[in-house]
Write a protein that binds this DNA or RNA. Structure first.
Length: 255
DNA sequence: ATGGTCGGGAACCGA
C-alpha cells in the first residue's frame, strides 16, 4: 500500500493539481493539510469521482486536514487530545485497513518567541502524549503531515536565514528529536540519508528557482510500520507546475 | 531599491 502526505495550501485552489497528482501517483491513502475549507466547501464530488473516500476536519479560511483513501476509512479521532478549548483543525486519525494513519498540521509557531510559539510547543507536547499511546498499541502507525519542523541544518538550503525561526529553534527541534528517539522512524531521512529531500519552497523571493527549500513534511513510522517499508520518496516535480502548492507530496510504500 | 508571493475571502491574516 502506498501512503502519502501533501500540504495543498487550499483544496479548491489546488484541486486541478491534486487530481493530476492522484492520477499519476496513485496513492492508496493520502493525508492533506491546509485544505482551508469546511465540509460544505470541500470538493467531495470531484474527489469521489477520482476514486477516493474522504474524511475531514475542516475549518473556514485556515488550517483543515483530510484523509483520502481508495478503500473505506474508519475515523478514530478528529482532534488532538489535551486541550478541549483548542478548535484549530490540525489533526485527524483513521484506520486504513490494518494501518493506523494520522494526518497532522503542526502549528507554524512564528513569530517566536510569543503566543503562537507557546501554542506550537504545547501542541507538540500533546502530540508526544498521543504518539506514546499509539506506540503502545504496537500496531503499524504512520504520523504523516506538515510538521513545520526543519529537523537539522542539513534539511534546509539556507539554514543561516532561519536563525531564530520557529521551524528551527532548539525547543522545536528538541521536541521533534525526542519524539523520533522515543521509537519513531523518520522515513524520508532513513531512506535517503545523503539527499536533503526538501518538501517546501517559499512562494517569496524565487525560492523554488534557487532551490532554497526545506524538509518540513514528514512520515514517522512506528516499529511495526517501519519493518514493512520498502520504498519512500518525494514528488519534487509537483512544485514546478503552474499554480503549485508551496509544498510537495511525500510518500512511502508498505508491504 | 522602503518591495517582494500566495490562498481565502473581501480587509487583512497566516504562512
Amino acid at each position: 500500500m502506498k501512503f502519502a502526505s501533501f500540504n495543498v495550501n487550499g483544496i479548491n485552489a489546488r484541486l486541478p493539481r491534486l487530481l493530476e497528482w492522484l492520477d499519476e501517483a496513485k496513492p492508496d491513502v493520502v493525508g492533506l493539510q491546509e485544505i482551508k475549507a469546511e465540509d460544505d466547501k470541500f470538493p467531495r464530488m470531484a474527489i469521489e469521482a477520482a476514486g477516493y473516500h474522504a474524511l475531514l476536519r475542516g475549518q473556514k479560511g485556515f488550517n483543515g486536514v483530510a484523509i483520502l483513501s481508495r478503500r473505506p476509512l474508519d475515523l478514530v479521532a478528529d482532534q488532538l487530545a489535551g486541550d478541549a478549548d483548542d478548535r484549530q483543525a490540525r489533526w485527524i486519525e483513521a484506520m486504513a485497513d490494518d494501518v493506523h494513519f494520522v494526518c497532522l498540521y503542526l502549528p507554524n509557531g512564528n513569530p517566536a518567541p510569543g503566543g503562537k510559539f507557546d501554542y506550537k510547543l504545547a501542541w507538540m507536547d500533546r502530540m508526544a502524549a498521543r504518539a506514546a499511546e499509539l506506540l503502545a498499541s504496537e500496531r503499524p502507525v504512520i504520523l504523516a503531515g506538515d510538521f513545520n519542523i526543519c529537523p537539522t541544518d542539513f534539511d534546509a538550503a539556507r539554514p543561516d536565514l532561519l536563525a531564530g525561526d520557529a521551524l528551527t529553534r532548539p525547543e522545536s527541534r528538541g521536541r521533534f528529536r525526542a519524539l523520533a528517539a522515543s521509537g519513531w522512524t523518520d522515513a524520508i531521512r532513513a531512506a535517503h540519508p545523503h539527499h536533503p529531500c526538501y518538501s517546501y519552497w517559499d512562494y517569496q523571493g524565487g525560492a523554488w528557482a534557487k532551490n532554497w527549500g526545506m524538509r518540513i513534511d514528514h512520515l514517522l513510522l512506528s516499529p511495526a510500520a517501519a519493518d514493512r517499508m520498502h520504498d519512500c520518496g518525494i514528488d519534487r516535480a509537483v512544485r514546478g507546475a503552474e499554480r503549485a502548492s508551496d509544498h510537495v507530496p511525500v510518500w512511502l510504500r508498505l508491504d
